[in-house]
Design a protein around this nucleic acid. Structure first.
Lengths: 207, 207
DNA sequence: GGCGTAAAGTTAACAGCGTCAAGCGACCCC
DNA sequence: GGGGTCGCTTGACGCTGTTAACTTTACGCC
């Protein structure tokens, strides 16, 4: 909610907040330290942002746009749908690993922190996902007839997210090579193009 | 660090903490409310746990054991390695979706909260992953010769984690059917059994 | 030029957080 | 029965996000 108020201070707050986030991480993102560095008081921030969450949401929006730019660049560099899909996956993973602080507030924050995130921003953010859907559809062509590509594209995203988030969180066994895992994740995305997904019914039928 | 102190209060604290976590979620997990419900003061908790983190770690350990039990049950019910792998995936997803609060503190907590998590517990917790490795190896047999199954098993885990965590966080488009996504995630695990992973080199070579 | 008004920012406070040092009361042991 | 220790409480510190009330600044207008 951009009030009709001094926009210069708003910018300054956002700039400092971004720097604090990137340099010191999310837990260091507190109102008083930000205010101190901006050169105003903590309560002044509330003249420009409804709450701390609103400030974080502004940072999330920045991150979403940055991600969108990188995905679009990957898309533009690809020759075939299949190539583009591979580049999308790689770009998504790179974005997360190179901007872990952004990635964290964008996708790893506790739900309660996101409850107030405006629905419209949410919808816009999710549009980044459409790239996956779109290229998946293009790559599969008519072979996609009886497949739910929206769900499959979502699965591609959630799988990539799992890899990124656990790597960022430092929860992957140190013996596992990071690059190798990334390559496997990319390969897994391409694997989704192969024939119809294997049906587990023969196993499931066993009950 | 289980001090040689009144173990009854320790139990009571842990029981209340678990209930608060499950009923009110992680953000409600605060020292004073827990103490109030236990019938002691907040500082008393420090006689039994080094810190709030240590208390959370104890809950994480409980969750890890619960997960381990369910994975073992899935393993026992499976007829073939392939069937077991499918059941493992399904059990993992179910555990997360049915115990979102446990899952959150186990795998979705901010890294800084986990820094103090004892290395030994960490190692023990990761053993749950070995089930995936083990069944992947069994299912692939000699075909796995030139594949890094440790990394591949890790990828299966991270992919499942991505799906679980984003579902828990409520970040999946409402138009996507939850069960369908889960089925796709299970199918994706089984897909990792198909021939050698598709090589993206033909695309990558394009640079 | 001085006044009135509205905006912009400050001070002080509230309730809650995790945590720590000191103190109190009951029990055991010599 | 006096000393010591265990189990717990009291009170406090510094931090958090946030609000209400106050002060300062800026600007239009007569």
């Amino acid at each position: 909610m951009p009030r009709p108020t001094n926009p210069k201070l708003r910018r300054a707050i956002l700039d400092v907040a971004r720097r604090v986030l990137i340099e010191q991480g999310y837990p260091a993102l507190a109102m008083r330290p930000i205010a101190r560095e901006v050169g105003c008081t903590a309560t002044s921030i509330y003249l420009h942002f409804d709450s701390k969450d609103a400030l974080i949401h502004a940072l999330i929006d920045e991150g979403m746009e940055l991600l969108g730019r990188e995905l679009r660049a990957a898309l533009a560099a690809g020759a075939t749908p299949r190539d583009r899909l591979q580049r999308l996956a790689r770009a998504y993973l790179s974005f997360g690993l190179e901007n872990p602080e952004y990635y964290e507030i964008m996708f790893m924050l506790h739900p309660s922190r996101m409850e107030r995130y405006p629905a419209e921003n949410y919808r816009r953010a999710r549009r980044n996902l459409d790239f996956f859907h779109q290229e998946l559809a293009a790559a599969l062509g008519p072979a996609a007839a009886d497949r739910d590509l929206r769900a499959e594209a979502t699965l591609l995203w959630t799988s990539l997210h799992g890899t990124v988030s656990l790597l960022i969180a430092g929860r992957i066994d140190a013996a596992i090579d990071r690059d190798k895992l990334v390559e496997l994740a990319v390969a897994q995305v391409l694997r989704s193009l192969s024939p119809p997904p294997l049906l587990p019914e023969s196993d499931a039928a066993r009950n």
